[in-house]
């Protein structure tokens, strides 16, 4: 930490702190808003001025995961008493859970499945993109590849087209080969989309690792593969973490292809959440709770990798 010496520096420092605070407020307000709304009772969600102090409820989450209909008449007290806590919350809101006529099982809204789909597709495609990207980057970094620059440019060029341009041909192809509305279809799509990014980022990181390390290992009796796993991979961990976060966020947030390429089985959460807006009178608390849950994995993932990320961002700057 540099010591603050002059009055000017102190003023500058205060200004900087103020700027950071303002920026934080601007950036965190929407997140606060989503989080707060997802714990509000429905009648508090749209009040003007906004309700800041309220009693939090899990009702939005109960509603998010179930299919509901309006109560025509008040529910009988004995039925209410017998209901589980989450169903009571729904009764309280003047709604009832739609149950299967034969089995009496509550009907799911489908959000849980969508959410699982999002997790499956994002995690697998991130893993594939990062691992293939790392190996490819290692190859480009360490071996003399004929036409190396052209290949790298070709890989990057897949990102030069807005994805929407290829959406319709992709849709037709996917339908023809039976990949439409499958997990594998989305995984392939997201992996391909993230791969070019992963190769480029990882090449930068691997280029920074002196090849002398591996060569020493080769001479010391290790194979190229062992040297890669024992020496290069631990050194590249920071880069891998940074790349994984970027790939995960891209796959997790992807909307257009998810909307087009999936309908029932493999649909992810992003197309589902807005689909709830238009159906009748919007219940904003339910939408907010869906969005809030949607934020959680990215927040956790980024938080776990935060140390690597910080180092990853400043990696090139410090070394050079």
């Amino acid at each position: 930490m540099a010591e603050i010496k002059t009055k000017g520096e102190m003023l500058f420092n205060r200004g900087a702190i103020l700027a950071v605070v303002v920026a934080l407020i601007i950036m965190l307000t929407p997140i606060y808003w989503i989080a707060a709304t997802s714990f509000k009772a429905r009648n508090l969600a749209t009040t003007i001025p906004p309700t800041v102090v309220f009693e939090p409820t899990l009702a939005p989450f109960a509603k998010l995961f179930t299919k509901r209909s309006q109560l025509r008449e008040p529910v009988a007290p004995e039925v209410y008493e017998a209901a589980p806590w989450w169903e009571k919350l729904i009764y309280d809101g003047g709604e009832q859970v739609v149950r299967n006529k034969k089995t009496n099982e509550p009907t799911s809204s489908g959000f849980g499945n969508r959410y699982m789909n999002s997790l499956i597709v994002s995690i697998i495609s991130t893993f594939l993109a990062v691992s293939m990207g790392t190996l490819t980057a290692y190859g480009f970094s360490r071996f003399r590849v004929p036409g190396e620059q052209d290949w790298l440019f070709f890989i990057l060029s897949t990102r030069m087209l807005p994805p929407v341009v290829v959406a319709i041909p992709m849709f037709l192809m996917y339908r023809a080969v039976g990949l439409h509305d499958t997990h594998i279809g989305l995984i392939i799509l997201y992996t391909a989309f993230n791969l070019s990014f992963a190769v480029w980022i990882m090449k930068g990181f691997i280029d920074e690792i002196p090849r002398e390390y591996e060569e020493a290992a080769l001479v010391d009796g290790y194979t190229r593969m062992e040297a890669f796993f024992k020496i290069v991979l631990p050194e590249a961990l920071t880069g891998i973490a940074a790349t994984a976060v970027f790939c995960f966020i891209t796959a997790w947030n992807e909307y257009a292809f998810a909307l087009m390429m999936t309908s029932k089985n493999a649909q992810t959460a992003p197309p589902y959440i807005p689909s709830q807006v238009g159906s009748g009178l919007s219940d904003w608390t339910v939408i907010a709770s869906g969005a809030f849950l949607f934020l959680v994995p990215v927040a956790i993932f980024t938080f776990l990798l935060r140390n690597h990320l910080l180092r990853g961002m400043s990696f090139g700057a410090i070394r050079k």
Partner: peptide, 20 residues
């Protein structure tokens, strides 16, 4: 023969030690 099989030891000017 690969480097591993040649039974030679190499000492370099720098970057020669395994980090971590």
């Amino acid at each position: 023969w690969t480097a591993a099989e040649r039974d030679v030891a190499l000492v370099l000017q720098q970057y020669s030690l395994y980090p971590r």
